[in-house]
Amino acid sequence: MTIVAEPPVQSPADAQPPGKVSKSFAYKDESAGLARELVKDTLRCWDLAGLVETAVLVTSELMTNAIQTGCQRVITLTVEQIGESAVRISVEDGSRYPPLLIKAGLPANPDRVPARGRGLLLVDGLCKRWGLDLRPLGKCVYAEIHGQCRSRR
């Protein structure tokens, strides 16, 4: 019988250089929940608990959009601290189709209200800025979240 030792479990902040965490996920619905947990745990480790609620919602929207492309490559989530109380959440997937921002308001015909597609409206309202970078084999959608600076002791 061969026993293989598992590597020690690392906190998100220990797994990569401080201030940046990346992880790949499958194109499965449960990946959005796993990504939310990673973001929540990471921001708490970085003492940015004030950004957690917004960051989790933004992560959910970006991951759901990526999962729905169905590209079947991998989705890579990156959380990066870009300031004392600011983070950038990036989701890279294998589709080059850009996400669509559907503006607020309802069409004149209520039967034509889309069932989906309003997630980026939330991201647009919650983030300092967001955008899209096309890559050779897909795209990266990012969002920057800024909070109150932490008080110095």
Rank of each mutant, 00 (worst) to 15 (best):
I89C: 05
V79M: 06
R153N: 12
V58N: 01
Q16S: 08
R152S: 13
G147V: 08
V56E: 02
I75E: 02
K20M: 10
S151K: 11
C127F: 04
G147M: 09
L100Q: 15
V79S: 12
P136K: 15
V9Y: 12
Y27D: 07
G70C: 01
V58A: 11
E53S: 11
R118S: 03
N109D: 13
V9I: 11
V9C: 12
P8T: 13
P110D: 00
D111H: 04
R152H: 13
C45R: 03
G105K: 10
L122M: 14
P12M: 12
I3L: 07
K40I: 04
G50V: 13
V113E: 09
P7G: 05
E53T: 04
R88N: 07
R118W: 13
V4Q: 14
L134K: 01
I102H: 06
L34W: 05
V58C: 07
L106G: 15
P18N: 13
T76M: 04
W130A: 08
L122Y: 15
E37D: 07
Q81V: 15
K40N: 15
G119I: 04
E80T: 09
I145K: 09
Y142M: 06
D47R: 13
V56Q: 00
P99Q: 09
P99M: 14
P7W: 06
G50F: 11
R153M: 11
I3M: 04
P98Y: 06
D14F: 06
R150D: 11
G117E: 09
V79H: 14
A143T: 03
L134F: 15
L51S: 14
D29H: 09
G70Q: 00
L34E: 15
E30S: 14
V141C: 05
Y97E: 08
L51Y: 10
R36K: 10
R112I: 05
A13R: 02
L100V: 06
L122F: 05
S22N: 15
D93L: 01
E53R: 14
L101S: 13
V74I: 02
T64Y: 06
G119T: 03
C140D: 13
V87S: 04
T78I: 08
V91I: 08
A55S: 10
P17V: 04
A15V: 10
V21M: 10
I67S: 01
T76F: 01
Q72K: 03
R88Q: 05
